[in-house]
Structure formats: structure tokens, C-alpha cells
Design a protein around this nucleic acid. Structure first.
Lengths: 237, 237
DNA sequence: CGCCAAAATTGATCTGGGTCAATCGGCTCT
DNA sequence: AGAGCCGATTGACCCAGATCAATTTTGGCG
């Protein structure tokens, strides 16, 4: 198979054995609803680097991330980029009020999503307030994360930003299962920089500094947290 | 009457003649629901500088801002402050999933809110999905604003931040009715700085610079937008 | 009106992180 | 195995905005 493709998995899939079942939006559905629900979505795979949807695109679908990591970002006219979120399995994307996405979303590494056409999904929600409540819950959780991130962007030093990022990222991975002091970082330095409001050089230097101080070890595709307490102190939570 | 007080308006009030009726969460209610709804909330007044609720407080109430301006902010342990939002009439405050507020909220100048005890409000929503949908809509709108603000905090220069702030603030006031090139700024320079991730000195200098260039005029309690086009160019929207 | 305190402005200086510029290292493709 | 590329690292230097330090302005109050 050639690189850089988008494939729709040809066989049907079943919500009942979906990996994100308990985290995702669908956790609010009972077994019989789930059976109807699985006809609404289809699994789609995106290779790394592919754009799933772009800012200003008319919203035609919602997405439930099943596997992989996505970067959610906005661009300024001159090309400056701010990553406004990193999506992990269970995250629900595409809600908006303007009818247009207000950020872009790329796959970082291969990604599998459960895609729902907007109209049928909207109809399905209509008379299922528990699903609506679940969506609301996810939106409020994201809002809270967004506010935390504003504090990081507006008021933290480069060292604090990087330390807080490593801890926060690890925390999110742990809550998905991966229990470890090995923290995989599938995204590039540029992604990290654009997430933290820094430059790649500063991110790289800060990593090196943390390593020199024995707080972390930079390993292939991630870092190893050698001294979590020290990193926490730096993050000035 | 002494300064710095919190008063509950002694007379009942009627949703039907509420100023924010059409903007707020209650816009989703029909006349008969509205009559029930007005028994749930009570109008409360806070003088300028008063804290309405604090980060980490257990959530006992939700608030519908009727009049005035509030600053929503988070503090770091060492006192650094990031204002994560400025609330205007019609904004709905207090939703969260942890059971605790995740930011603090102060009145800037006098403020009137419609306060709802959490439990009865929750019960009222229960079987009114259209109200839930309205709340969700407001949450999603805020999320979109939060993302825009992340771009500002992480990727814009001081000049761009200030210019974007003036335009955005004017925009919000206009949508509430005040149509004008006179932009009232009821908040202090410190508030503006903490909203934009800058210092008071930089905000002050940037205002002065804009004035020297003839883009704005600094007037008592606000600014006058002399050359909106120039400010828009600076904001690099 | 005059006094005091707090907010805002302005100036002088400093510095964290950006910019510019080499390397370095790992991966893919012959 | 070697060439070429792209991402990451490292170093040298610079500058936007922070910090430190006076004023100046505003507002409240007797």
C-alpha cells in the first residue's frame, strides 16, 4: 500500500468491541441504541500528516477519534500556527455553532476515526438527551482544558511550559491506559513548540537542559521521566 | 449605602422584562416555562471588585450575568494571574464537571446576576432538552472564543494583542447594542494586561503608541476608535 | 479646595526567548 | 554502502517586552 492515503475500512465494525467505548461520546448509549448508532458511523483511516478537516470548511461530519493522535490548530495569515489542542482516542471533534469548523485537524502518525455525517447524527441526538448531556460534558471538559492552556500560554516561562506539557501529556496517556515513566511523544518538536507558544529551538534547548539536570532522558520517539518530582517543581503547578 | 456590598434585590423580578432575555440561556424557554423559571433564580447585585466565586470552590450555583462586566481568571501559586475571559450580560457561568469552579470570577464595576441554586436548576433542565441544547450552544461558543484567545496568547505580538483586544471588545459590545466608535473600557490596565499575557507597562505604552499614530484616542474610561482600518491592519486578523 | 492613595504613564535598563546559522543524526531510496 | 533530506540540536547574537524606577494623573474624602 502506498503512503499517504485515506481508507474507509471495508468491513462493518461493531461499537460493542470499540476500544474507546467507555471514554467516548458513545459511553452514554445503551446496548440497543448502540446497535442503531453503529450504522451511523463509519471507520476511516488517515495516514500521518493527512488533514482530516480544515478551518473554515463547512462542517459535514463529526469525528470520534478511535486510535492515534491529532493536532488541532489555527493559522494566522502569515503562517504562524497555534496548536489549540492535541486529540487522543475518545475525543469528539467537529461541534460548532457557525456551521464551519473553527480549527484544522491533522493526523499525527496514523489515525482511525469514527466519522458521522452531520445530519443523521443530529437527528439521532434529537430525542436522546442523555447523548446530548454527554456531548455537553465533553465540551465543558475541553473548555476547562482550554482555560488551563491559556494560563500556560500567557503566564508561564519556557521551562514551565515544557515541564507542564510533559506532565500533562503523560497524565492523559496514563488515563487511557499506558502506565509508565516512558512518555511517547509522537509529535514533532515543531508541534510541541506550536502547542506551547515557543520555537523549536527553545523546546529543544529546554529538553536538553532537563536532561542535563537528570530530570528526563531523551529517548527515541519520546522521553523517559527520571525525576517526576523535579519536573513537577519546575512546572510550578 | 456603604460601598462593597452584595445585595439581593428584595422585590421579585420578571424574566419577561429581563434585559438579556434574548441573548441568554433563557432564550430557549417558552412563556410558560419562563414563568416557572423565574422562581428558580434570584437577582443579586455585587459591587465592583467583589468576588462572585473562587477557583476550587464547590459549585453551589450557576449565574446568568444580567448587567455589568466580570473578569474570569486563574492564579498561579506565586500570584501570576491569567484572565481567561471577560463576561458580559447574557453570559452563563458556573458549568463544570468536577463539581468545583475551575476559575474565579470578580465583578468589574457593579454587576447584577441571576443566581440559580445548582440542584433545582439541574432538575429543571432534566426534562427540557432544548434548554440543555442552549447551554451546549453557549459552551461551544465559549470554546471557540477560548481557542481564538489561545492563538492571541501564543502567537501574537504585543501590538497585535492590544489591537485585537480593542476590536474584539468593541465587537462584543456592539452585539449587545452599543453601536459606537467610543469603546468603553471599564477594566483596569492590569486587567487588560492579565487578559493579554502582557504587563501593564506594555499595555500603556501600546495605547500611547496607537494614539500617537492617530489610530485611537485615549479618553476617560475607554478609547475612541479614530481609524478602525489601521487597528484592524495591526491586529493581523 | 487640598490631601492622600491608587492607577496610569513614561523612561532607562535588562534578559528570556527569538532569530539566524551551522552541524549533526537518522531514514529512505537507490 | 553511499547520497540526499529532513528533523533535531547547538551556538552566537539580537530584540520585544519585562523589570525597575520615577513621575504624573485621577479619584475619593474631609
Amino acid at each position: 500500500m502506498k503512503p499517504s492515503m485515506v481508507t474507509i475500512e471495508p468491513y462493518g465494525h461493531f461499537c460493542s468491541d470499540c476500544a474507546v467505548r467507555e471514554f467516548a461520546v458513545c459511553s452514554s448509549l445503551d446496548p440497543s441504541e448502540l446497535r442503531q448508532f453503529e450504522h451511523l458511523g463509519r471507520r476511516v483511516h488517515f495516514d500521518g500528516g493527512k488533514t482530516v478537516f480544515s478551518e473554515e470548511d463547512i462542517t459535514t461530519s463529526f469525528y470520534n477519534l478511535l486510535k492515534g493522535v491529532m493536532r488541532l490548530y489555527k493559522l494566522l495569515p502569515d503562517g504562524r500556527r497555534q496548536i489549540v489542542g492535541l486529540a487522543l482516542p475518545g475525543d469528539f471533534l467537529g461541534m460548532n455553532i457557525s456551521g464551519r469548523h473553527n480549527f484544522s485537524a491533522d493526523a499525527i502518525g496514523g489515525v482511525t476515526v469514527c466519522q458521522f455525517a452531520k445530519a443523521p447524527f443530529g437527528r439521532f441526538i434529537e430525542d436522546r438527551p442523555h447523548l446530548l448531556r454527554r456531548i455537553n460534558e465533553l465540551a465543558i471538559r475541553e473548555l476547562s482544558q482550554a482555560r488551563d492552556h491559556m494560563v500556560l500560554l500567557g503566564r508561564r516561562s519556557a521551562d514551565e511550559k515544557v515541564a507542564a506539557f510533559l506532565l500533562g501529556w503523560r497524565e492523559r496517556l496514563v488515563s487511557l491506559k499506558e502506565p509508565s515513566d516512558r512518555v511517547p511523544l509522537p509529535m514533532s518538536r515543531r508541534d510541541i513548540a506550536d502547542y506551547l507558544g515557543l520555537t523549536i529551538e527553545t523546546v529543544s534547548r529546554t529538553f536538553t537542559k532537563l536532561e542535563r539536570h537528570g530530570a528526563i532522558e531523551i529517548i527515541h520517539g519520546g522521553i523517559s521521566l527520571l525525576d517526576p518530582a523535579r519536573v513537577e517543581a519546575l512546572a510550578a503547578a
